[in-house]
Nucleic acid binder design. Sequence first.
DNA 1: AGTTATAGTTAGGAAACCTAACTATATTTG
DNA 2: CAAATATAGTTAGGTTTCCTAACTATAACT
Lengths: 202, 202
Amino acid sequence: MKRSVFDHQFQQQSIESKIVVSLERISEAFRVLLWKESKEHALSPIQVQILIFCNFHSEQLRKISSLASEFNLTKATVSDSVKALEQKGFIRKQQEPEDTRSYTIHLTKEGAELAKKISMFADHLYQPLSTLSDIQKQTLLSSLLEMIYKLQQAGIISINRMCFSCRYYQKKSDKHYCNLMNTPLKNTELRIDCPEHEMIGN
Amino acid sequence: MKRSVFDHQFQQQSIESKIVVSLERISEAFRVLLWKESKEHALSPIQVQILIFCNFHSEQLRKISSLASEFNLTKATVSDSVKALEQKGFIRKQQEPEDTRSYTIHLTKEGAELAKKISMFADHLYQPLSTLSDIQKQTLLSSLLEMIYKLQQAGIISINRMCFSCRYYQKKSDKHYCNLMNTPLKNTELRIDCPEHEMIGN
DNA sequence: AGTTATAGTTAGGAAACCTAACTATATTTG
DNA sequence: CAAATATAGTTAGGTTTCCTAACTATAACT
């Protein structure tokens, strides 16, 4: 009989189920923080995410389709929110001559200012990390990276821009190597959202 | 100038910001999995959470107010969802003689069966952990526990039933100790959702 | 040139959330 | 003990989230 990670008896035997439950609690924290930040600025959670994302990512990614797969939503949902942001004057749509079906999202001056403010919402997660030792942090990070990679391979998270899924990444005798920068990468240098990322096998 | 964890340059310097971004990705995975599971059973995400929670927690916690603070929602929101679950025949409200204002939620036979099924939704998070070493898992867990405790202290997550916030917990010369069971606790024995939990200072 | 794929929008609907105002019981306290 | 206050839950009304399905318009095959 298979057991759920939420089963107390199972939790007492299994460290894995404790980890999953912990991660679930932290997800809850994200949800709460995002919601709170949204309300404070009269935005919706998804609008907050879009503003932050657009503030930190390149033109190619600042399109309806990219945003949709980034946040695992439909294009219709994203389209609505983008329209709302446009009406509020935080973004502007810019047609490109190459493909007139699509457009790139640009933050207006007000949008960029707002984005800077709201992107601090995750700070509350940042502070609790300060008391962990360096080794703890390193182990924590590599474990999380491994998890994320597997979640992406399993098709649960659609998009990522981490080294493991990048065409420039190579494992050389158990060491990480980036073929774009031509340098070895320490565990802590592995990126989770690399601007130069190119998906493997494209 | 303070920087956001979503800032790429900042990420390259700071391991903490990478961890936060990773956690954010994992939260996304939870959101997606919960949504998917909901749709498959014609439930809403919050209904799924309520069913699972009620399946694994004691009577005192199976009340509107508890659920509301557990999930950081208002009572109104929870009340609505519980009503829906009742109409679908998965739960039943049971008045207690001690306090007739309130009632306890009981799963019906169908509700319990459904709860068992849907509580496996987190399994996709469980499997990616299998390749981690024991030491990695232990470090991961204690880091997460520490984070959660601080998030609760900071008032971001309202409720938890972990050892650190329990009146029976004691730190004896840097070792963990449970005064209810009268036993020392290894790092891996620390609980994240203990049925015997009693909030400190009550 | 005609089919097919892709980018984004619109419309309609269920549900997730909230706030505010409400009922009904419990508890406190003057 | 009666009056004031607190607590448990509901209802009403609103905005936003998200979906699916049908649509327009452009781009890219064949």
